[in-house]
Simulated assay, not measured.
Amino acid sequence: MTSLLFQLVSVFLLLLAPLLTSCQQLLQPVDCSAIYQQNRTKPSGVYTIYPAGKSSAVKVYFGVLVNPPSRPPQVFQRRMDGTTGFGNPTGEYWLGLDNIYHLSNNRKSELLVNMEDFQGKKVFARYSSFSVGAAGGGFVLSVSGFINGGAGDSLSYHNRMKFSTFDKDQDTWPWNCATSFLGAFWYNSCNYANPNGVYRSGTNSTFSAVGVKWQTWKGRDYSLKSISMKIRPVL
């Protein structure tokens, strides 16, 4: 009798496990794609995700794509008006390197970079493969598979680079690219792209190349009106 009861309990737990996993994913989605898969009628807006488990809750913005509907890309970086800080999911935003690492390593991901100039022209660059390495290795950028949406390829130059900041110089330049160009990024020696640079209005060469830059589109000294970097799982 005890053996039969044990077998019945074991079968019940096996049947229950997928349901519990599904509920966990619904309550603590790892990314915006998980939210979309659970409910495809969700509108664009701010949602909470858990890139590294239940203790890693963070608010993010995703916009639902229509005509036809598809998995929403998730914003991890945005510049749009020069407001201070990067903590507003609907404004200027930076998700954080640890979270980007977890999102891009959960599964194969692609990157979409949207940008706009001060004349209202919009272009994009897309990369079919994107990931960021772990903190111990310096958050190394891996990006490939460029698809041109009018912006040109300013990011491949930064491929395989560690992330540099004012207080952690990990670029290949003799000096600190982050300090010299007033930003933080996967600098090489130094940059073709500087999306976290100083927010300025269009062409300004007073202090060269310190603006929100995508060099293959607008050149070295043009600071963009807006730029956003978005990640999406590749199925």
Rank of each mutant, 00 (worst) to 15 (best):
L26D: 10
S22F: 15
V66A: 11
Y47E: 03
E92K: 03
G120C: 08
F124E: 13
N105G: 06
Q37K: 06
T90P: 00
V30I: 11
L13R: 11
R79P: 00
F118H: 15
N88Q: 04
C32S: 03
P51A: 04
G211E: 09
R200K: 15
T84H: 12
Q215D: 14
Q170H: 04
R220L: 14
Q170L: 14
P29S: 01
L14E: 12
P174L: 02
V143T: 08
Q38G: 14
M80P: 00
P89Y: 02
L19A: 12
S10Q: 15
T206V: 12
Y199E: 00
Y36F: 12
N188W: 04
L224E: 08
N106V: 06
V143Y: 08
T203K: 10
P233H: 07
L103S: 07
G85M: 11
A125Q: 07
F146Y: 15
S228F: 01
V11A: 15
V9W: 13
S131Q: 11
V9N: 08
V60S: 03
L111C: 02
G87K: 03
S70K: 14
S180M: 05
Y47W: 08
D98A: 04
S201P: 00
A151T: 01
F166V: 07
W186Y: 11
V58M: 06
S156E: 02
Y61V: 02
L112A: 01
Y50L: 04
P233V: 05
W217E: 04
V58Q: 08
G183T: 02
R40I: 07
Q170N: 09
G91P: 06
T48E: 12
K59F: 03
A193H: 07
A209Y: 05
L182D: 04
N159G: 01
V132N: 00
R200F: 10
A135M: 13
L224T: 04
V132Q: 03
T21W: 10
T203Q: 10
V132E: 02
S22N: 12
V132G: 00
S129H: 09
R232P: 00
V140D: 00
S154I: 07
N196Y: 00
Q74G: 00
R220G: 01
S128Q: 08
L65N: 14
M80I: 14
S10V: 09
K213Y: 14
